[in-house]
């Protein structure tokens, strides 16, 4: 085990999970695709660092997810595609993180958030034999476990709540960093309590954390993101969207991401013009989802960390 990270038994179970996964997508009419790992463009995100490489004086990035290219394939007329590939996120290392990991990502035209969540749930039940997932809105989860409404609370109220929950604020935390406070409360006090028995799918994240999801109005009248995440035993397993299809809105959000990156002292990233052009041509309404396969395998096999679920996970 010291030599390989995962034991041969684990690797054989992992292989069976992959076979079941491909069968699941096959049965549901998905085509398996492959897209570049190394590319001149990325989708800039505030808190994700794609590793940069330099070839012949031109920069290329290892992709943090296959989203950019898979959406271009959807726009080009492929209505149901999936991929099992590697993704790369710099500086993420811990029992539940590794800079290189196996991601499963899929898109299906015609799906919205509800059908997207249903497909994710069905996949986990079929492949990893999970019990049916519970569905909870992000707002409800925050109200239950942190006693605060994430949509209506002021930043002062969030700050006060963090103190009451005995969270020590990181030095230099901006007093008006609303998403920063939401992230502290969610990551430290809420997420560890989500999905303790059956997997739990949270949906309707704050509009400010929409990333590439459509923004909509929830039944309580708040602006929310049509974004969902599956959390199982406190571990985030998958993240999905009712995909944003409006190129102008995406350009506005990405410019905003780059402004925030620069304000935080990190370099801005190139805007993915190829994706924006494809969306201008027309990205049909669809739902997409990305699943951390190492984490699903770890949880399905009852292992304590990713290192035991991957070959050479200790190196």
């Amino acid at each position: 085990m010291d030599q390989t990270g995962a034991t041969p038994t684990t690797l054989s179970q992992r292989s069976s999970l992959l076979v079941a996964l491909r069968q699941f997508f096959g049965h549901h009419g998905f085509l398996e695709v492959e897209t570049p790992l190394l590319a001149k463009e990325v989708i800039p995100e505030i808190h994700i660092e794609p590793p940069c490489t330099v070839h012949d004086r031109s920069k290329q990035w290892l992709q943090a997810s296959p989203e950019l290219h898979m959406k271009r394939l959807v726009a080009a007329g492929m209505p149901a595609i999936y991929q099992v590939t590697r993704s790369f996120r710099g500086n993420e290392r811990g029992p539940l993180h590794n800079p290189e990991f196996t991601i499963v990502e899929w898109y299906r035209v015609g799906d919205d958030m509800q059908t997207g969540m249903a497909l994710l749930d069905q996949l986990c039940q079929t492949v990893a034999k999970t019990p049916p997932a519970k569905r909870t809105s992000y707002g409800e989860a925050m109200r239950t476990h942190a006693a605060i409404c994430p949509h209506s609370a002021t930043v002062d109220q969030l700050n006060k709540r963090a103190a009451e929950l005995e969270i020590t604020l990181p030095d230099g935390m901006q007093k008006d960093d609303r998403d920063g406070f939401l992230n502290l409360l969610f990551a430290l006090r809420v997420q560890p309590q989500i999905g303790c028995d059956e997997p739990e799918i949270l949906y309707h994240y704050p509009a400010s954390q929409a990333a590439l999801a459509k923004v909509t109005q929830c039944s309580e009248g708040h602006q929310v993101a049509a974004r969902f995440e599956m959390i199982w035993r406190g571990v985030e397993v998958a993240n999905g969207y009712d995909e944003l299809t409006d190129a102008a809105e995406l350009r506005r959000r990405l410019n905003d991401v780059n402004r925030q990156r620069e304000a935080a002292g990190r370099s801005s990233l190139p805007i993915p013009e190829s994706l924006l052009a494809a969306m201008d041509q027309g990205l049909p309404d669809c739902s997409g989802c990305a699943l951390g396969f190492d984490r699903l395998a770890m949880l399905a096999m009852g292992l304590p960390s990713l290192a035991e679920a991957r070959a050479f996970g200790r190196e």
Binding site: H47, E92, E166
Partner: peptide
């Protein structure tokens, strides 16, 4: 190490004061 996929990375540490033996978060 805690990092929601789309959120900021947080490093939750317990530090032991080597002189007094007390522990701080």
């Amino acid at each position: 190490f805690r990092k929601p996929g789309k959120g900021a990375a947080l490093y939750e540490c317990k530090l032991k004061n080597l002189i007094r033996g007390t522990v701080t978060d």
